[in-house]
Design a protein around this nucleic acid. Sequence first.
DNA 1: TTCTCGCATGCAAGCGCTTACATTTTTAAG
DNA 2: CTTAAAAATGTAAGCGCTTGCATGCGAGAA
Lengths: 339, 339
Amino acid sequence: MRGTNRPSLKDVAAIVGVSTASISRCINNPQKVAEPTRLRIKKAIESLGYVPHFGGRALAINRTNTIGAIIPSMENAVFASGLQAFQEALSHAKVTLLVGSSNYNATQEYDQIRSLLSQGADGLLLIGKDRPKNTQDFLERNSVPHVLAWCFAEHMSSLTVGFDNRKSGQKITKHVIEHGHRKLAVIAGLREGNDRAHERILGIEDAVKANPTVEIVAIEECKYSFNEAGAALDRILAIEKSPTAIICSSDVLAVGAMLRTKDLGLRVPDDLSITGFDDINLARVVTPGLTTVRVPQQEMGRKAAVILLDLINPNRSNAELQSIELTTPIITRGTLAYL
Amino acid sequence: MRGTNRPSLKDVAAIVGVSTASISRCINNPQKVAEPTRLRIKKAIESLGYVPHFGGRALAINRTNTIGAIIPSMENAVFASGLQAFQEALSHAKVTLLVGSSNYNATQEYDQIRSLLSQGADGLLLIGKDRPKNTQDFLERNSVPHVLAWCFAEHMSSLTVGFDNRKSGQKITKHVIEHGHRKLAVIAGLREGNDRAHERILGIEDAVKANPTVEIVAIEECKYSFNEAGAALDRILAIEKSPTAIICSSDVLAVGAMLRTKDLGLRVPDDLSITGFDDINLARVVTPGLTTVRVPQQEMGRKAAVILLDLINPNRSNAELQSIELTTPIITRGTLAYL
DNA sequence: TTCTCGCATGCAAGCGCTTACATTTTTAAG
DNA sequence: CTTAAAAATGTAAGCGCTTGCATGCGAGAA
């Protein structure tokens, strides 16, 4: 909206022959304006193609009706679909989504937080719960309304909508162990600054420790790409004690590993079992289908939106908002063999 | 940024003991402020945790440094990755991305356009080139800076960054025909309000018409989901003249069809050839690998950002900006058989 | 020493909108 | 008819920031 001379309230007022206040009221509280005037105003607005100036309004009401989301990357379908659900929910409430991406990097996330906030975001959706002190401080000090998705924690200063990554990691591992596997390997995302990856591994270790006959023969971290995962698989296969199952902390990683096994002439799950995490489309499409953990992507997006909208609602009920814990069912397909 | 009492320029000025003008200058034109003052100001800003108020600034400079993108859906990886690239490019230029999604629906797109613009977007990224007259009019009348991606056209009032969907459709079809196929079927996205789907089919028809021995035995439209594509495949197989190849206007559709063939016990490509369009991760992962058309998703995102940034640059060179045509190579994998 | 010029800073006028309060008009009760 | 209350509209003061112009200062030139 940047024609050289966009119409302003004044212009509309001049045409209709009323004060700017009436126009404003007509836009924000139509019932406060008499029917006939309202009609004339509507017509004038229409004919001028008037659109309220965002800055002016934001300045006056100190609110932008805008919410920011900072996700690691839209490249990964799991976040893209969560974001899509989030956006749709916001859209119904007439609030607009600002997007930033952190590339799994805490500094970038901090920058994006500052940036989105300085763009006027009324609230923020963030992924995961661990962040550096300065980021944390910044959020608190400015009392930024925000919710954390993809994780769950009670008794935290922030609200969360998601699941317990550690428990989920433990659950899938237990599942693998129940299939008779004793030597496990792990391919995970880089743990640094990524609590989800970190906690999932912790969960895996929990399950292993609970069972003395089971051991983890290798943990390989790598970026979220097929090729990196393939390389991680190579490293794992290079060690003496071959695992019978590889637990991956993400479907992308799992599928990358599967692709590599194919190149190597290994059969999944006969020669090697592989499990994923996320349950994105890829998991369903690869052959055999990937046994994985379903992450409630869309549900998180939708629920996070609800909470956030409530949080920034100026006349919000004092109703105590609660963190929400969602479940992560195991989806059984074909990559996990009984030993 | 909505602490009950966020600091304003005035507060900073009070602490430093200079006028608000100097603070403003220090933020926007540091070289216009003497070194020592600048340092003191920086310190004060830091200690207060001051962040410029978005509305105030937007009102004063009549610009938001915000660009909107309206894509059909982030659910489809092809758009998600284009959007990711777009966002990154914008981020480098310190501009923020507003996101809306249209769900392949012209009315929703129009609403989102209005919405993003009223949120102050300085410019817009839109997908595809055909839209209803009212949308078109709206864009022109308000002279909204915008670029259209995922399509290409010269001599249009809008700039485009993308490829010629029709030519690409023709190209893959020619490729299929060269493999000896004579009876083709098509699974496409809903054409209504979707010029990409529409033009791809036109291209397919072009290629077929150029070769009298070839015919299209069926064209099925459906939504972009595996199941819908599977159902479309069923409909195609139900007719008498069985096609030997199915050309799909998107990878999602192609993979959905492949999944269904598997259920049906049909072998791809031995019993049936299938081609896709987009070249998203799915195409590489499915077995056999999907022969498809590569769409330069990220390149479009990046280049669209460059153009758009130029377009909204207040002191922009008069350099005539040009639409950009990108190529769409055919990626040969395993779903297209020689007959 | 005086005069200029340039640099650093301050002053103050908006930018377009909302809203508390004041004023006018309408409505309805007596 | 009056008159009070309610409804409709107007007035004007900001919201926080930017920026053209004015001012004050010190340095170098004459």
